[in-house]
């Protein structure tokens, strides 16, 4: 009776969220096999490019997963990304700081934004939607203020008003490089690193349990001695950290810090989490589900783009896929 046997019937296996999420991914993948655009889908570099294109979103989705598990939401990730991208570009291009200090200061800035949101949500009890909406607007404004509304690129304005190109900082090339014989990009590796970090937090650390407990039933968690406010600050702090990582990657890929970058990224990240099957009610979900969601959206976009489907139809189809995937997750039986 008391063993943790895993004699699970086929029915409940089919009903498990992982299998359902995988089903959605397989459908999209199968679509790629059919609409392969003269064999383009069968080439590895297509998949590599898909992974590269999806990496920045994927990094944001890691933080979003953690926040959504606590029954929260973080709308500020795209703006924090932009703020960090601008800061990073200024530090490395304009001020020519060493990449180490630039990276660590940028990560701290991201964590700071997240912790501030978490403080508003935890101790000050502002609803996550409102608090991070405020942070979203604030960080966007700060990105524009810091950059003076200009893209921070290697074309640096001189005191006499002329523009002069400075060399691209080494760190930019390092981050956007391809490795393993050109088969993988560094940003993809960074995304995988973030996923593993999130997995360790959720499954291996005590705080992971706390995150699920707070999302599942905040009151019961508090009455069981869970430090609810600290858990929330941690969750949003982590989302801020990942936003900063994404911001650095974004700057490196674009070779500039754009204060307008990351607009709407928060919604893509939420979509990835939700397509994976992590519900917005909180208390449930996992980073592997989010990975499946990342790949589902990534492949969908890639398949549509290699088949030269315009952005208009691409967006419409993505909307439909989100609904389909969530409906699939919702139905009690398959």
């Amino acid at each position: 009776m008391m063993q943790t046997r895993s004699s699970v019937s086929l029915g409940s296996w089919l009903a498990s969220p992982t299998v359902r999420a995988l089903a959605a991914l397989l459908v999209v993948f199968g679509l790629g096999l059919l609409l392969h655009a003269d064999g383009a889908f069968y080439k590895w570099h297509t998949h590599r490019d898909m992974l590269r294109a999806v990496s920045v979103y994927g990094i944001l989705a890691c933080g979003m997963t953690v926040v959504i598990i606590t029954a929260g939401i973080d709308l500020s990730v795209g703006s924090v990304l932009a703020l960090v991208a601008v800061l990073f570009a200024m530090m490395t291009i304009h001020w020519q700081w060493s990449w180490m200090s630039a990276v660590s200061l940028c990560l701290l800035a991201g964590i700071g934004c997240g912790v501030l949101s978490g403080w508003l949500i935890g101790p000050l009890r502002i609803q996550p939607f409102i608090a991070t909406l405020a942070m979203m607007v604030f960080a966007r404004g700060m990105a524009k203020w810091v950059s003076g509304g200009q893209k921070i690129s290697t074309a640096v304005q001189q005191p006499d008003g002329t523009y002069q190109y400075v060399p691209v900082p080494e760190i930019f090339q390092m981050l956007s490089a391809k490795i393993f014989g050109g088969n993988l990009t560094v940003v993809t590796l960074i995304m995988l690193g973030c996923i593993i970090m999130t997995w360790i937090l959720l499954k291996k650390l005590r705080y992971g349990r706390y995150l699920y407990a707070v999302g599942g039933n905040e009151q019961a968690a508090r009455l069981s001695g869970v430090p609810v406010n600290a858990v929330k600050i941690l969750a949003y702090g982590l989302a801020g950290l990942f936003s900063a990582v994404a911001g650095i990657c974004q700057a490196a890929q674009e070779l500039q810090g754009d204060p307008e970058a990351g607009g709407g990224y928060e919604l893509s990240a939420i979509a990835m989490v939700v397509i994976g099957g992590t519900t917005l009610q909180g208390g449930r979900g996992s980073i592997w589900l989010t990975l499946i969601g990342i790949l589902t959206i990534g492949y969908l976009e890639k398949i549509l783009s290699i088949n030269a489907v315009g952005e208009d139809k691409r967006l419409m189809l993505t909307g439909l896929i989100i609904v389909a995937a969530v409906l699939l997750q919702k139905s009690k039986r398959i």
């Binding site: 005590r206 349990r209 039933n217 019961a220 069981s224």
Partner: peptide, 28 residues
């Protein structure tokens, strides 16, 4: 409403208040 995390499993619920014992140094 105040005793259980209904969606989580039996083990997680039963260990929630004494989680420190099962996670020296923060690792489960």
């Amino acid at each position: 409403t105040t005793g259980l995390i209904l969606g989580r499993d039996i083990i997680e619920n039963a260990s929630l208040a004494s989680l420190r014992r099962f996670s020296p140094g923060g690792w489960m």
